[in-house]
């Protein structure tokens, strides 16, 4: 298993921080992509952040009232090692299987 950290994104144009209002997930929980993770408040508005990916929540940063700077870790997910980046899976190395056999009388001239 591998860990992937999701930093707080810029939630408006040039905002530098956000305040955590309420976490909607907790460590150990399995979340789906786009599932609401946390409600945060910026100087512009209060928003729910959707999960950028599926995975198991390992850690969350900040409790209600805490400020988090843009770019600092917000949440860490555990994902299977065979997840190939954002899509796909790492191919398994398998012993080659065959059904076709070759037969030929080769002239060796």
């Amino acid at each position: 298993m591998a860990e992937i950290s999701f930093p707080l994104p810029d939630l408006g144009e040039g905002l530098i921080e956000a305040t955590v209002l309420e976490w909607l997930v907790s460590p150990g929980e399995q979340v789906e992509r786009n599932q609401p993770l946390v409600e945060v408040e910026t100087t512009k508005s209060a928003v729910e952040l959707p999960s950028p990916q599926a995975g198991k929540v390992v850690r969350i940063y900040g409790g209600p009232g805490d400020k988090i700077n843009v770019g600092e870790p917000l949440i860490v997910f555990e994902v299977p090692d065979n997840t190939a980046g954002i899509v796909g899976t790492v191919p398994k190395e398998e012993a080659p299987k065959r059904r076709v056999r070759l037969s030929a009388v080769l002239d060796e001239d």
Binding site: P96, K97, R98, R99, V100, R101, L102, S103, A104, L106
Partner: peptide
């Protein structure tokens, strides 16, 4: 896949 490549090889050998 492996079998398709082997078939191609067989066609050339034959």
């Amino acid at each position: 896949n492996i079998d398709r490549i082997l078939f191609g090889i067989q066609r050339v050998l034959e």
